[in-house]
């Protein structure tokens, strides 16, 4: 089934853009969650929460829209993955609920125990969400056992293979780094000094994970590198990725916080791009029995449906981008610790 203008590739890109948007935006507030428990005082923790306060639920909307777009454009992928990864996705949902609740409730009572309980929930939920998202991505690279009916044939433990767990840990490391940089951007004084230390620590942690994941990928899953061999122009993407990563400590050192954060955004986006390029045109690899894989060809919605949705996206996206940027502009600058909402 080849559609005109290659609608399916366009939707592969659009779903990718939405999920990348989610990784960049919720990535920093999940990352705030991982470093959160390292903060030294209640005031510091509240400052961190207020740094993400106006934006965290807007950031989660990218996940909702990304999931919706997946359902819409590639219903078979949505159906296979969500039912096949049942328990991990339930854990993910519980993580999202606990995290939202923790943010809203932790500062409502003065009790130290109450706050501590929610602080731990917030931290653990943030780590869990990042880990599960990474494990899911990892399994997309490894491939999962599928049948001719497109249904998942494995168990819960099939998903917990070492490589996928490694990708999960790498994702936690990436978001930790990304969140620490956001903390540097949004805070001042003592807390900012501490956040700068988190950045350096997490960059080292991430660099190690990244190196390990890259080696493991090249050794065990060379199909992910196939396109970079046949079409070397794609190598620009990993180059941009590495340059962006190296630029982060440099900008942090020069106290150029905004540039550091933008570099981190580029790093996250180019990692997602690497993943997308490696995967294309597959969406869910079947392992074993690669002939049962879900691809953008056999798993997509009809031409009519994809065309309608593309029209909607083209009409709506400019507005979304315009007012989302305007809102981030409204909330630019440091968190004011004199007027905390949370």
């Amino acid at each position: 089934m080849d559609y005109p203008f290659d609608l399916q590739t366009t939707w592969f890109l659009l779903v990718g853009v939405l999920l990348t948007g989610y990784a960049i935006l919720d990535g920093f507030d999940l990352g705030i969650g991982t470093v959160y428990l390292l903060a030294k005082s209640d005031l510091h923790r509240r400052t961190l929460l207020n740094a993400i306060g106006p934006v965290w639920d807007g950031n989660e909307v990218w996940l909702i829209t990304g999931g919706g777009a997946l359902f819409a454009a590639f219903p078979h992928v949505y159906a296979t993955v969500f039912s096949g990864f049942y328990l991990p996705f339930m854990l993910l949902l519980f993580g999202l609920i606990f995290r939202a609740v923790a943010i809203e409730f932790r500062s409502k009572l003065e009790s130290a125990r109450w706050r501590q309980a929610w602080d731990v929930s917030f931290g653990l939920a943030s780590v869990l969400i990042a880990l599960l998202a990474g494990v899911a991505l990892g399994n997309m690279i490894v491939g999962v056992p599928l049948g001719p009916d497109m249904e998942y044939k494995g168990t819960f433990f099939t998903l917990l293979n070492p490589y996928s767990v490694l990708v999960g840990v790498t994702t936690v490391a990436l978001f930790t780094m990304h969140g620490s940089i956001y903390a540097v951007l949004k805070t001042e004084g003592e807390l900012q000094e501490q956040a700068r230390k988190w950045v350096f620590g997490s960059i080292i942690f991430f660099a190690l994970c990244y190196l390990l994941t890259t080696m493991a990928t090249l050794l065990f899953f060379p199909h992910m590198a196939e396109k970079f061999r046949t079409q070397p122009l794609w190598l620009l993407v990993p180059m941009v990725n590495v340059l962006a990563l190296f630029n982060i400590p440099r900008e942090i050192y020069r106290r150029n916080e905004m540039m550091a954060f933008l570099s981190s955004c580029v790093a996250v986006a180019s990692l997602m791009a690497l993943f997308g390029i490696g995967l294309y045109p597959n969406l869910v690899l079947s392992n074993p029995n690669p002939e049962y894989s879900l691809t953008i060809r056999n798993a997509s919605s009809s031409e009519a449906s994809l065309t309608i949705m593309l029209t909607i996206a083209i009409l709506g996206m400019p507005f979304v981008l315009a007012y989302t940027s305007a809102i981030y502009w409204v909330f630019r600058g440091k968190v004011n610790t004199q007027a905390l909402h949370y």
Partner: peptide, 27 residues
Amino acid sequence: RFVGDIFGSALAAEGIFAFFLESGFLA
């Protein structure tokens, strides 16, 4: 799998015209 092709358009419209609008301006 059965309804994805139909619901797709409604969901896409909901995501783009409603969710972002509501959550963004709520901030």
